[in-house]
Amino acid sequence: MTDTIPSGRALPGSPVVQGLIWMGLSMVAFIAMSVGSREMAGTLSIRQVLFFRALVGLFVILAVGRAVFPEIRRMRAVPLHLARNIVHFTAQYFWTIGIVLLPLASVFALEFTMPIWVTLFAWLLLREKVSRQRILATAGGFLGVLVIVRPGIGMIDPAAGLVLIAAAGYGLSLIMVKRLTGHCSPGAIVVWMILIQLPLGLIAALTDWRPVPMAAVPWMVVAGIGALAAHFCQAQALRRLEASVVIPIDFLRVPMAAVVGFYAYGEAIDLWVFLGGGIIILSNLQAVLAERRGRITGAAEVEPLVRPDPPR
C-alpha cells in the first residue's frame, strides 16, 4: 500500500542508508506483530487474534488509506481477491498457532522456506521456467528444514509442520498477488485483504469466542499496527535496495526473535535453528545473485525469485 500511505519526510542519507533503516523498522514491526499475537493468545482464541488484528487494520486503513476507495468501488477481480484471502487467512491461522507453540526464532526460520513454495506454485500455476539456480535453492531450503526439525531426533513438533503449511499458503497467496497486480494497485490489494479477512475472522472468532479482557487491547494494537507497518516498511526498503541485499538483512529477524524469545519468554537459543535457517537463506540468496548476474551480463534468462514479502 505504498501508493496510499504518505511517506512523510524523507529519511536522511543515501537510498542505501534509507533502505537499511526501513528494513530495520520492518524487522522490529514483524517481531512486534508476533509478540502481540502471542500475548493476545494467552487470553483469547487464535481465531479471535486474527479477527482483532484485522479490526485494527481496518481502523488504520480508514485513517490513512481512503485515497484508494474509488478503485475499490470498481470491484475489479473480486473472485481472485476472495480466493487469495481465503488462502492467506488459513495460512495466518497456522502461522499464529506456530507463534504460540514454537520458539519465535524457529517460526521465522521455517517461514523463510516461502520462496521454495513460490517457485513450486509459479511452475505449476503460472508455467514459469524453473532454472537450475531455483532447483538448487529448493534443494538447499529442504535441507535447511531437515536441519531445523531434525527428523529422527525425538518426535517432530506438529506445530513445525503447521508453520511449513503456512509458508506454503503464503507462497500460493503471493502468486495470486502477482496476478492481482495486473488488475489492481498494491493499496487496493491490501484494502481488499482487510475487507475480506475481517468478516472471515469474525465468523471464525464467533465459533470460539472468549471474554476479552482490557489487558488484551494494547496487544491488539501492537499486533494490528505491526502487521501493516511491517509490510509497508519492507516495501519501502525494496524500493531502495535490491532483493539480493534485502534477503540476507531480513534473515536478521531470526536472531532478533531468538533474543526477544530468550528475554521475554525464557526460550533456549537453539543453534540448529540458526544453522538450518542459514542454509535456507543462503540457498535463496544464491538464486537471487544468479538472477542479478544474468541480468548484468545479458546471459540466458534466469527467472527472478519472487521477493519474500508475504503479507500477514
Rank of each mutant, 00 (worst) to 15 (best):
L44W: 12
G57S: 14
L101N: 14
V100P: 01
D208S: 11
G226I: 08
L25I: 06
F51D: 10
V28P: 01
L285G: 02
Q18H: 04
W95R: 03
V49Y: 04
S45A: 06
R179A: 15
R47N: 07
L162T: 03
H81L: 04
T181F: 04
G8A: 12
I203A: 13
L104Q: 13
A137I: 14
I46C: 07
V259N: 08
R76M: 06
T138L: 11
L164Q: 07
T119G: 01
T90H: 02
P304N: 04
E39D: 02
L228S: 11
P12Q: 09
Q48A: 06
G169F: 01
E71N: 09
P6S: 12
A257V: 05
I97G: 01
G141C: 08
G161M: 03
W117H: 00
A290W: 00
G36T: 15
C184V: 15
M155R: 14
I249E: 10
T43L: 04
L252G: 11
T207Y: 01
W209G: 06
A257L: 11
G224D: 01
A109D: 03
V288N: 00
G182E: 12
L180V: 10
P79S: 03
W22D: 08
L172G: 00
L55S: 12
P211R: 07
I86D: 03
P218N: 12
Y170V: 02
A160Y: 07
L50I: 06
A54P: 08
Q18W: 05
W117A: 00
P158S: 14
E303P: 06
A299R: 15
S45D: 08
I148A: 01
T119R: 00
L282S: 11
G152E: 14
V259I: 13
L44E: 05
G24K: 03
I5A: 13
H183F: 10
I156E: 11
R293E: 15
L228N: 08
P218R: 11
Y265E: 08
G278N: 07
S244N: 11
I247A: 08
E128L: 01
R47F: 04
L202I: 07
I99M: 07
A159Q: 11
R293M: 14
R66N: 07
G140T: 09
P311E: 00
L198A: 11
T113D: 01
I225F: 14
M193Y: 13
L228Y: 12
R240N: 10
A67W: 11
T90M: 14
G276D: 10
G161L: 08
I279Q: 00
S185M: 04
G57N: 12
A137C: 09
V163G: 02
H81T: 10
A216F: 03
A287Q: 09
A67H: 13
A105D: 13
A188M: 10
G276P: 01
W219C: 14
V288S: 05
S37W: 05
